[in-house]
């Protein structure tokens, strides 16, 4: 089955991973800007990183027929440095018209601090001023519930936010309902120890239906599995779910969400299969 991984950090993966993803049916992916494994010392570090996301990664993906898209921001971890964050936010508009840039992300909270919240609000303001979509990181483990509720408060407080153009990622059993009830898109991240497993993600689809739900691997520096979306597809099949339901979550939904971005120029791989004919 063709699928799209809407959240995967390919800068931290090898070219072999691109090849494996292609063999498993991945036709497109989107890569949110995130932490590089170290705190960058200046705004120029982010400029170079954005160039890598917009320039080299699509090339590497293209070697295997995968279409690469990305999101730009300063991540929540480095946003603790508010002065640096403001420099990065001021620079981002230079990149927003470049091919494949889908919006602002992954912004959010990490340890749910005041500085993180301040920078999150400034990113939201940037996205609204520039009419960009938003992709949001919710914190890990014990910080997730509190951080997700804070993020929803901030989004819902701002009447300018178009909720259909916002994806709140890394939802789990205790946060998914809050996100969907407020009208946002929700992403489930399949991760070996923290976050969701393929089985629990399938449970969430069974409980809430496929509307505005996405699954991703988040493949990054940590122990993570870039081929986790095919694991989810297999789990859904083992439970006897229809191909059209599975395709809705792993292909149609990402296309529907991304299509709201002006830079989402997508060449569907095989119109017959994608349309379910």
């Amino acid at each position: 089955m063709y699928y799209i991984d809407p959240h995967i950090h390919m800068v931290s993966r090898t070219t072999d991973d691109y090849e494996t993803l292609a063999k498993m049916g991945c036709v497109a992916l989107s890569e949110p800007a995130f932490w590089a494994g170290y705190d960058r010392g200046s705004v120029d570090g982010f400029r170079d990183y954005f160039e890598q996301l917009i320039g080299f990664e699509p090339k590497r993906a293209g070697w295997y027929g995968i279409q690469h898209f990305c999101w730009l921001c300063i991540n929540a971890k480095e946003a603790e440095n508010v002065a640096l964050a403001r420099e990065v936010i001021a620079m981002i508009p230079q990149f927003l018209d470049r091919p494949g840039v889908l919006g602002i992300g992954e912004i959010g909270l990490n340890k749910n601090t005041k500085n993180e919240a301040t920078v999150f609000l400034e990113h939201i303001d940037l996205a609204i001023r520039t009419d960009e979509q938003i992709l949001i990181h919710t914190p890990h483990l014990e910080d997730k519930y509190q951080g997700t509720r804070m993020i929803l408060d901030m989004l819902c407080d701002d009447g300018r936010v178009n909720r259909e153009r916002v994806l709140v990622d890394h939802v789990e059993e205790h946060t998914v309902r809050h996100v969907l009830d407020e009208g946002f898109w929700a992403g489930m991240t399949l991760y070996p120890v923290s976050k969701c497993t393929p089985g629990r993600a399938a449970d969430i689809v069974e409980l809430y239906g496929p509307e505005r739900l996405l699954v991703n691997s988040a493949g990054d520096w940590g122990p993570s599995k870039p081929t986790a979306v095919p694991d989810f597809i297999l789990e859904m099949r083992r439970r006897g779910h229809s191909e059209s339901l599975i395709r809705r979550v792993v292909y149609d939904n990402p296309v529907a969400f991304f299509s709201q971005s002006r830079n989402f120029v997508f060449n569907p791989p095989d119109v017959t299969e994608a349309a379910g004919v």
């Binding site: 014990e142 509190q146 408060d153 059993e173």
Partner: peptide
């Protein structure tokens, strides 16, 4: 969901006042 909440920090509605945001 209940197990998740056991392992979660509490959310307080008035966090914005605390942060003055």
């Amino acid at each position: 969901e209940q197990v998740q909440l056991i392992f979660s920090r509490q959310f307080r509605d008035d966090w914005r006042e605390e942060f003055d945001i």
